[in-house]
Design a protein around this nucleic acid. Structure first.
Lengths: 193, 193
DNA sequence: CACCCAATCTTAACAGCGTTAAGATTGATT
DNA sequence: AATCAATCTTAACGCTGTTAAGATTGGGTG
């Protein structure tokens, strides 16, 4: 463990170095060999920890996904306890600002189809995209507080509307050829309703 | 021109074969060499027509972009002349259904930042994404018809809301891990307003 | 303590990729 | 008929992901 042959903590460092490369050079510049070199290890060592490259990228993606969710939770927790509407707005703002700060993460998270989601408002799904699960929870909380009893169809449509609004703004704000000198926060407000 | 050394129409066939490969195997499976082989030509012949691979992919992307716009125009033209609201709805529906039919096109069009867009409602921009230009036109038409005089800020926000709603739904409808057995048309209706 | 095994890492090799360089072929122009 | 520029070919380079076979090592068993 001391003397280099066995790294000791390779799997995690591969993820960290991979993330660093994506941040600095973009996802397309990420290669198995480069990550290994960054860890000071031969280019096939990673196969002891990941099935293939895609498996490693997926692990990195899950790290980003958790990091994203953590930011959303933080934003929501900063709002006074009983103001569900404000919490939803706070989530929407952070959702957009997170990706506005790191546009590459948007592409990285959403373009390879890892995001699992169930609109079904009558059940919870452990495997769902955490950011979505949080939104779903807040939405149900809001309905409950306001005494709204939506049909399943109405509720699902409204949930989709909420998420797609915010997600759509993030998608557009991330396009590097889109310039908008207004305030994205205002846009979010205007969209969520 | 007859006897094979000079292909005669290579550039266009490269685009067509490239598009075919993307449709059948996905963008990541597209290679310069494979497209060339599909055209029955050596793997460097394409360099007479495209600067590099990215240049060829961009050409393919512009083809898809035009094809997409054509579909939207067709949908809009199918609506009675003076019903602007219905036209916008028709555009939204086709926007989503187009990508729902070919999910790979969504990623292909939007994840490499080719889409240029100006929200500025006081000018027209030739180079803008044609689908967006159409929406912008309809939006201004609607305001005019209804005698709405929005400030520049309000107008831009509303335009963004319109587009991001539709775009967001398309983005979500395209994720292969998202299953929704409701009608996306209803979702579009509910979002556009 | 000695042994062994399984996990971990290395080197070697393969096919596929984009790209460049140098040369062959051709249709069109002079 | 000669020439030239556009077009296509072959050869080579360095990079990529992946597999196979072997070296190294730490932990658990006798």
């Amino acid at each position: 463990m001391l003397d280099s042959y066995h790294h000791g903590n390779l799997k995690q460092e591969l993820i960290e170095q991979g993330l660093r490369i994506i941040n600095k050079e973009g996802e397309d510049k990420l290669s198995f060999r480069k990550v290994a070199a960054a860890c000071g290890v031969s280019h096939t060592a990673a196969y002891a920890h990941f099935r293939d490259k895609n498996d490693m990228v997926t692990a990195i993606r899950e790290t980003v996904s958790r990091q994203f969710a953590k930011e959303l939770f933080k934003a929501v927790d900063g709002v006074k306890e009983d103001c569900v509407e404000d919490k939803i707005v706070a989530l929407g703002r952070r959702y957009v600002s997170f990706f506005f700060e790191k546009p590459d993460y948007f592409k990285f998270l959403f373009t390879n189809h890892m995001v699992k989601v169930h609109f079904d408002i009558e059940k919870e799904y452990e495997e769902d995209f955490p950011a979505f699960t949080l939104l779903k929870k807040l939405y149900l909380e809001m309905n409950k507080k306001n005494g709204v009893v939506a049909t399943r169809e109405e509720g699902e449509r409204e949930l989709i509307r909420l998420w797609s609004s915010v997600h759509g703004i993030a998608a557009i704000a991330c396009m590097d050829s889109v310039e908008y000198d207004g305030d994205w926060n205002e846009v979010v407000m205007n969209c969520i309703k």
